[in-house]
Structures are given as structure tokens and as C-alpha cells.
């Protein structure tokens, strides 16, 4: 009959809270705060743990990569293509008319230094790893990468040119620590 459950946050009889209601409200608020404080560790425990976060960034030494050569590194469980582009590849990439691109993006917006192309090597169609890292691989009609799963062609800037993929190959966040080292992530 009396609405005196301690957890009731309402209270206040006409004109404002009585002392009794203040006690109930204070207790209820403290209880709610306690419950929230207890819930947070459970939720946060599902967030990436320290050893996962430690691998969230990787540093790659670029010095062994020659011009015209590509390497693949693993970052956050995904393949990342790093290519040291030749002058021809850079010129071709920069000369493309953006109107022809299914996903228009200038080459300058995809690289920090034109010589170095860094992209996530996962086809934006359905997730296969495109071919083109090795010199013996098919590179598609645009001299870049070719995805054998459904025939997507990427150019020398990693942009989609032909085929079912909707977007260009993703460029992850990266920084040059110095001329020879890049940190991805």
C-alpha cells in the first residue's frame, strides 16, 4: 500500500520531498550508481585486451623493399599490401580521369609519399585477397591488382576500375616514423 520501496526514485509528496523520501531517494540513487559501477567491468572485459591492443600497431622496415616490389604484412589479422611504386606506376595513377572511377578518389589522397602505396589487401566486394603482389601474379587490366574470386580489377593506386567491387582498396591509418620505417595503425 505504501509506496515505500527503497528503490523508488519518485517520492516527494505535495510540496517537495519529506525527510523519509529523501532517505529513500538517496539510497536509491546510490544503489543505481553502484549497479552501474558494477556493470562496467563486465562490459569492459569484452573490449580488446592489452595483448590485442599491443598488436594494434605494427612497424614495418621499408629498407629491403626495392622499386617495383611489394610486400604483404599482417596487421590486426588482415593482410596489408605495401608497394614501392615505379615512376611509371605513379604517373599512370596520377593521370587517371576521376570521372572514369566507380569510386572517385585522387591518387594524392591515397598516399602520403607517392612512392609508397599502403593498403589493406582485402577486396571490397566479398573479402578475398587480390592477386598482384608477386611479379608473376596476374595484375588485371590496369596494372595493379586482380581479384580472382569475381574479377575485380584495381589500378596502380589500388582503386577499383572494373568488376563488382564497390570501393577502392582501403588505406589504413599510417605514419612514417622516418624514411625507412612506417607505423601502421
Amino acid at each position: 500500500m505504501s509506496d515505500s520501496a527503497p528503490m523508488a526514485a519518485d517520492g516527494g509528496e505535495d510540496g517537495g520531498a519529506t525527510r523519509r523520501d529523501f532517505l529513500y531517494i538517496a539510497t536509491g540513487v546510490m544503489g543505481a550508481a553502484g549497479v552501474a559501477a558494477v556493470a562496467w567491468p563486465f562490459v569492459d572485459s569484452m573490449n580488446p585486451s592489452a595483448e590485442v591492443l599491443a598488436l594494434a600497431e605494427i612497424e614495418v622496415d621499408l629498407s629491403p623493399i626495392e622499386e617495383g616490389q611489394s610486400i604483404t604484412v599482417t596487421w590486426r589479422g588482415k593482410p596489408v599490401f605495401i608497394r614501392r611504386r615505379t615512376a611509371d606506376e605513379i604517373d599512370t595513377a596520377q593521370a587517371v580521369d576521376l570521372g572514369l572511377l566507380p569510386d572517385p578518389q585522387a591518387d594524392a589522397d591515397r598516399v602520403q609519399k607517392p612512392e609508397w602505396l599502403v593498403m589493406v589487401g582485402i577486396c571490397t566486394h566479398l573479402g578475398c585477397v587480390p592477386l598482384g603482389q608477386k611479379s608473376s601474379d596476374p595484375k588485371g587490366e590496369f596494372g595493379g591488382w586482380f581479384c580472382p574470386c569475381h574479377g575485380s580489377h584495381y589500378d596502380t593506386s589500388g582503386r577499383i576500375r572494373k568488376g563488382p567491387a564497390p570501393k577502392n582498396l582501403e588505406v589504413p591509418a599510417y605514419t612514417f616514423i622516418d624514411d625507412q620505417t612506417v607505423r601502421i595503425g
Partner: peptide, 13 residues
């Protein structure tokens, strides 16, 4: 031990 050291609040759980 990973729970104790690396998982957020793992030690508490």
C-alpha cells in the same frame, strides 16, 4: 594469467 594481466578488469572478475 592472461585474464589477470591483459583482460580489462579480468583480475577483478
Amino acid at each position: 594469467e592472461r585474464i589477470m594481466r591483459d583482460v580489462n578488469y579480468g583480475w577483478l572478475l
